[in-house]
């Protein structure tokens, strides 16, 4: 992606609103169970593992690994200009927490499965959209 930021079309639910606002303080948050400590994504009304209602957002490191990705060459949404990378990132806290995102701040050809990445946020209206870029704070 280049130039203006693309239209993000964030449509949050009551359960997910925190996810799209979390980046306001620079931290990514994922829902976690206050009873069994499992991470839950996408967020829901109760822990799917122990059924506790005591679930809520908790900050994560914001680092992870590219599980897979695609390089989009077609314009699906006007203003969302190709080429761009859509990827699934698995978070370090729990690789079953898989986040769809764009990989930015690198050449698209540099993206590969297993690549270490870290979160950054793009403001889009009232939302802070989590994006990922190659990890710069660690040895890859």
């Amino acid at each position: 992606m280049s130039g203006d930021n693309p239209p993000r079309f964030v449509l949050a639910s009551p359960e997910s609103e925190f996810y799209w606002r979390s980046g306001a303080d620079g931290r990514l948050r994922i829902q976690r169970c206050g009873e069994c400590s499992r991470w839950v994504h996408p967020p829901g009304p109760a822990c799917p593992f122990c059924h506790s209602r005591r679930v809520g957002p908790e900050p994560v490191a914001g680092t992870g690994t590219v599980a897979t990705y695609t390089i989009n060459r077609k314009e699906w949404i006007p203003g969302f200009t190709p080429p761009y990378v859509f990827a699934f990132v698995e978070l370090d806290e729990d690789p079953t927490v898989r986040i769809g995102t764009n990989i930015v701040d690198c050449e698209i050809e540099e993206v590969e499965i297993g690549m270490r990445v870290e979160v950054l946020f793009e403001e889009s209206g009232e939302w802070h959209v989590p994006l990922f870029r190659p990890a710069v704070t660690e040895e890859s």
Partner: peptide, 28 residues
């Protein structure tokens, strides 16, 4: 798509077609 359902985590990233999602599986 475009609702607050499960596709809310892909549409904001320009992954608006099943082509994008299937491509991720094909790549892996």
């Amino acid at each position: 798509a475009g609702s607050a359902g499960p596709f809310q985590f892909m549409i904001p990233y320009g992954a608006a077609s099943a082509a994008c999602w299937v491509a991720c599986y094909a790549r892996r």
